[in-house]
Design a protein around this nucleic acid. Structure first.
Lengths: 196, 196
DNA sequence: GTCTATACCTCGATAGAC
DNA sequence: GTCTATCGAGGTATAGAC
């Protein structure tokens, strides 16, 4: 067990260990035994908190969803102008990609490992991108209204969908290539969306 | 064994069976035993052709790579104008997405299941998107040169990268949501790239 | 090539002793 | 909460008989 986990509860130790393993190795490639060993908990303790592996995965995805949404909005809120706030969603991906070593989006990565289309695990992926879309939609609206002369030619819905495909594409390509440049390209692409 | 496979060689039966299983269920979630059963071959025969599961996967990815590239270029070549040929790469994704039931890109799906970054399986993903980029780059160049008055303001490199993120994003989102509309959005987005 | 049998391992999950 | 032992199933891979 890593030293930094020693003071955490067993449940938190599991929740702090599993994400990295699932994310780095893949969900199915990571065994319960490995999670248990790395988290330093007993097997019975693990199953007391998470009856099945999918239960752990779902808890992890919910946590990651909330965490990433907060990071994005914090980044956006650190910006002052409607323009930089609008760019902020895509821009926040740079630090995220570096930090996660370009392993791509956990939700894009997870979905194909879950054959059952009605699984709650897949639903969490929908929620993740629904949240991003709603945020971008709001920022797009604010941008357009902030300067009708400069941005009045833009349509908020179209702008949002174009932003979304750029965002998802940049993330997906960064994952495939395991490199940063697709994120950089996405950041440029989003800026071109609001050029006249 | 499905009837349509009866006249194929054992190797081809495996190669025609595995893709669907890997694609539908995920790579690691699909066992060798299932491939063998569905393909109607003996275990020893399977291992004579593919020493390991990864060998089968690599053969499958190479085959899928060539196959999809051919489908895209066939679609592009069925179009006459530089403009419709340029749109053709993204447009060809619609029939592909319907046919594959929106399960997303096999290469985007595969990469996170392969922890080893230097694996040949991952390399196949790079080749897949390198091929798409080169094709789009060529079509962008042809489009710009076809009508300098209409398209002279565009830069081929920028246009290609914007196209790529839209393309990958549309595919990735179609996979996450298991629906068609992200592809439709991508098709619209690509058209907006060449608007003045 | 086919078939069956099987080795060996790890999986997710459970149970009992402390 | 911890530990160890173990379940049954299924994983990849091999061997022998035909």
């Amino acid at each position: 067990m890593p030293a930094k986990l020693e003071n955490e509860s067993p449940r938190d130790r599991i929740l702090m260990t599993a994400p990295d393993l699932f994310y780095r190795q893949g969900y199915r490639a990571t065994g319960i035994n490995e999670v248990i060993e790395k988290a330093g908990v007993a097997k019975a303790t693990f199953y007391a908190h998470f009856p099945t592996k999918d239960d752990l995965c779902l808890a992890y995805l919910k946590h990651r969803n909330a965490q990433e949404y907060k990071e994005i909005t914090d980044f956006v809120n650190s910006k002052r102008t409607p323009r930089t706030r609008f760019f902020g969603v895509m821009d926040s991906m740079e630090a995220w990609a570096v930090r996660t070593k370009f392993r791509g989006c956990q939700f894009i990565n997870m979905v194909p490992e879950v054959p059952d289309h009605s699984s709650e695990l897949r639903r969490e992926g929908h929620l993740h991108y629904d949240g991003a879309r709603a945020l971008i939609r709001k920022l797009a609206q604010e941008l357009i209204e902030s300067d009708p002369h400069e941005y009045g030619h833009l349509d908020a819905n179209t702008l949002t969908e174009d932003y979304m495909t750029h965002l998802a594409g940049a993330i997906a390509l960064a994952g495939v290539y395991n490199e940063l440049w697709p994120i950089k390209n996405g950041m440029s692409a989003v800026r071109r969306l609001v050029e006249k």
